[in-house]
């Protein structure tokens, strides 16, 4: 996907014309080798079924996923909301493409290694004292996945493609960004529940 500069059409003329949109790639191709490396490592961890490798992928993936969700939803979101339109556009074009690669990779790492880890330590068995907690975490992840895939990711992509137009619609971008930030906040709050469950499971 090629890069180019453009301007936002709905930006008030009083500001001296529409703000420029910096050149950006919708999918940052430089990050793809890192994604491939992470997925390959995950396959090896599952195939080898080693406790350390599975724990590593689950803890690293889950920790980053939770941290990023909380940081974006509860800290960065309100800050972006108060930024000027040009600053918001510049931030969006630099931040959103990275999120497009980062989040699906972290989610895949966490869930696939987490499932295998639960299997390895016997938490999937219905006789395990952790089984009910695990099912609760499945439900929370299910709700978060629905919000992230059904609302957050489409909004993220639509913003990036709108910014690629010769004359992007500022009003539409603002609406979609608001949706992105609110849903990131909701999933961030749900991550707190995941933290409670996971720390409970690992100490029982």
């Amino acid at each position: 996907m090629t890069s180019h500069s453009t301007t936002v059409s709905a930006y008030p003329e009083a500001h001296g014309g529409p703000p420029p949109v910096p050149a950006f790639q919708i999918v940052p191709t430089r990050g793809i080798p890192i994604v491939i490396l992470a997925v390959a490592g995950l396959v090896i961890a599952i195939a080898s079924n080693q406790l350390w490798a599975l724990t590593f992928f689950h803890v690293v993936g889950g920790g980053l996923w939770t941290g990023v969700d909380l940081f974006v939803g509860l800290l960065l979101g309100p800050i972006i909301g108060r930024m000027s339109v040009p600053a918001r556009i510049e931030f969006t074009t630099r931040f959103m493409p990275k999120m497009l690669l980062l989040m699906p990779t972290l989610v895949t790492m966490t869930l696939a290694s987490g499932w295998q880890l639960a299997r390895h330590v016997g938490n999937l068995s219905s006789s395990s004292p952790n089984h009910a907690w695990l099912v609760a975490s499945f439900i929370i992840v299910g709700v978060m996945a629905t919000i992230a895939i059904g609302i957050l990711e489409p909004a993220n992509l639509a913003v990036l493609f709108e910014l690629k137009k010769p004359a992007p619609d500022g009003e539409l971008i603002g609406r979609l960004m608001k949706r992105f930030i609110y849903t990131a906040g909701i999933t961030g709050a749900m991550q707190v529940a995941t933290l409670i469950i996971m720390t409970r499971v690992s100490t029982q």
Binding site: I149, P154, L157, K165
Partner: peptide
Amino acid sequence: LLLGFAVARYQPMTQGIAE
């Protein structure tokens, strides 16, 4: 399907995305 639709619904009908 959802992602493709979410993007395409805001794109011009007669052409693809802007390059």
